[in-house]
Design a protein around this nucleic acid. Structure first.
Lengths: 161, 161
DNA sequence: TTATATGCAAAGGCTTTGCAAATGT
DNA sequence: ACATTTGCAAAGCCTTTGCATATAA
């Protein structure tokens, strides 16, 4: 049984090229413009591994060379989501603007450690299939989903003993 | 996004009695008091069928006979969560204080319609089992989880055609 | 050129908090 | 009696928006 498991810090620096193209296509299809702020935001988003949070992003982009406004960050995150490059996730954290990358349609779910906060991603074919089955049972046409399991990661659960 | 409508139906004697006891036990164990506002909030929470949202709750409880402050609503929701009577859920809605009842360990997941906002609950034994299996594969000790599928409900998906 | 995008600052939700007054045990 | 709770109003955070200005195509 195939097992695709990933850590937050998988080093894939330069391969945002594909995403970048997808972004440009999306923009031009909609008659939107590839501006300096949008480029900067795009880069920041796709150079970060793991999850992207609007406020953090805005903070980074306030630095000397960049100076992108908070408003543009929020607006551009919307675009990236519409372009299907980024997907909103909801953690127990009070923030509503947290996203994760969507790498070429690959989907995954989350194990969140309630002790150390580590987020581990996983993917399960079985889970996807089951979901499809469950949705059709309820006459529901799924667009996307989030599954988050909260609990103790291996390390923390050992420490607890 | 449209909001789910809630009907506060007339107060038959409910089976929230068990929960009420659990609440009282929790309070007294902690040396906390069963006050008038807490009673009112408890009632409101457990007379609602479906999901509970802090602001809505506060709005209801501002009515003539009740007059409970927003602050107390928020504070009491924390208590109910700590007492394991209510569980926070995260929807794509900008609100962080949405809860659902926990009925004696019974768990369910959600289908959220992105068109009309309707929230349908479902439970699947298979899903639970699969989850357990997946967690152990990742050496993860699950405490609770949320699965939310966003998509089109039967009605809306028909309308779209 | 000219519609689109930006930055700013103000407004908006929702939530949290400090504090004096009220209340349960 | 006295620690706990309350309500209020203010503050806080994150997000959204209106508008004049700047900019990509």
């Amino acid at each position: 049984m195939p097992r695709k498991s990933k850590n937050i810090s998988s080093p894939n620096l330069t391969n945002s090229d594909e995403e970048r193209e997808q972004f440009e296509i999306y923009l031009s299809n909609k008659g939107l413009r590839l501006t300096r702020p949008r480029k900067l935001i795009f880069d920041e988003v796709f150079n970060v591994h793991g999850h992207v949070d609007a406020e953090e992003l805005a903070a980074h982009l306030r630095e000397p060379g960049k100076r992108v406004s908070r408003a543009s960050v929020y607006r551009t995150l919307d675009l990236l989501a519409e372009a299907n490059l980024v997907k909103p996730i909801r953690l127990l954290s009070g923030k509503q603007r947290i996203y994760e990358h969507i790498h070429s349609g690959e989907h995954h779910d989350h194990l969140v450690c309630i002790e150390c906060g580590r987020i581990q991603e996983f993917f399960s074919e079985d889970l996807e299939n089951l979901q499809t089955k469950l949705c059709s049972k309820h006459e529901f046409k799924p667009a996307r989903h989030t599954m988050i399991v909260y609990g103790l990661c291996g390390q923390c659960s050992k420490k607890k003993k």
